[in-house]
């Protein structure tokens, strides 16, 4: 379970408050959309969860442990509980599909036997087993994002953080990615997805947390993407 307790984040260099006194809870296995206009504070939430940055005030509990108090050397182990997918895929161009996924497992110290077993398994989950030997530049945008999802899933994360994962994809491909994420969620992984995609939010009928100027202004199960949200 993830629990934000009165979390405020103020960036020292920018001076503005990115998140103000935010409190919400996400249960294990939930699918949550973070919506809001650009700069509203969605990405700040994902960054705080990964401890890419830390809170100015408040607590963030992950399964009862306050991650804001974690010492620096513990952060990699926190991140291993999460998978992350970005809008720009962030794949390693000089490695094949297989190697990109393998890389994620090597990082956490998986041995060769585990890798040989898990990589085909996870590529199969995203339907890319047959492209294992190809390089990212040989794949379409949707396929690249599926590799990114496979990489995020490789280490059996409890939580999958997706920051605008469909932002660079056409509607059809975007829905394919959402189907994969939905399937992953059904298998028990918590999914937190920051998005601007109204059509996706409206179709998926999941919980929606809306952020505006750093404030949580809506938290609604089965919510929609409101017209009032600026892109």
């Amino acid at each position: 379970m993830i629990e934000f307790r009165n979390v405020t984040k103020q960036f020292e260099d920018a001076g503005n408050i990115a998140l103000s006194n935010a409190s919400f809870t996400i249960e294990n296995g939930e699918f949550v959309f973070l919506v809001g206009s650009s700069g509203a504070g969605k990405t700040t939430i994902t960054k705080l969860l990964m401890r890419e940055t830390n809170v100015s005030e408040g607590e963030i509990l992950l399964d009862g442990i306050d991650i804001t108090k974690l010492p620096e050397k513990e952060i990699p182990f926190l991140r291993r509980k999460m998978g992350v997918v970005f809008q720009d895929f962030r794949l390693l161009e000089d490695r094949t599909v297989y190697e990109n996924v393998e890389f994620a497992m090597r990082v956490v110290g998986a041995n060769s036997r585990e890798i040989r077993k898990r990589v085909p398994e996870v590529l199969n989950e995203v339907g890319l087993n047959y492209k294992a030997k190809m390089y990212p530049r040989q794949l379409s945008g949707g396929e690249q994002q599926r590799v990114a999802v496979a990489r995020a899933l490789a280490n059996h994360p409890l939580i999958l953080l997706a920051d605008e994962p469909t932002g660079n994809l056409n509607p059809k491909t975007a829905m394919e990615i959402m189907d994969i994420l939905d399937e992953i969620n059904r298998m028990g992984t918590t999914i937190i997805m920051a998005t601007h995609a109204k059509d996706i939010v409206d179709v998926m009928k999941k919980r929606v947390i809306e952020v505006q100027d750093g404030n949580i202004i809506r938290d609604e199960v089965g919510g929609e993407y409101l017209e009032s949200i600026e892109a």
Binding site: L92, V108, N155
Partner: peptide, 16 residues
């Protein structure tokens, strides 16, 4: 730097 960045996101320790 991109690769290092990804490694950090995935949970690589500084030593790794």
């Amino acid at each position: 730097r991109k690769e290092i960045n990804i490694m950090k996101y995935i949970g690589a320790t500084d030593r790794f």
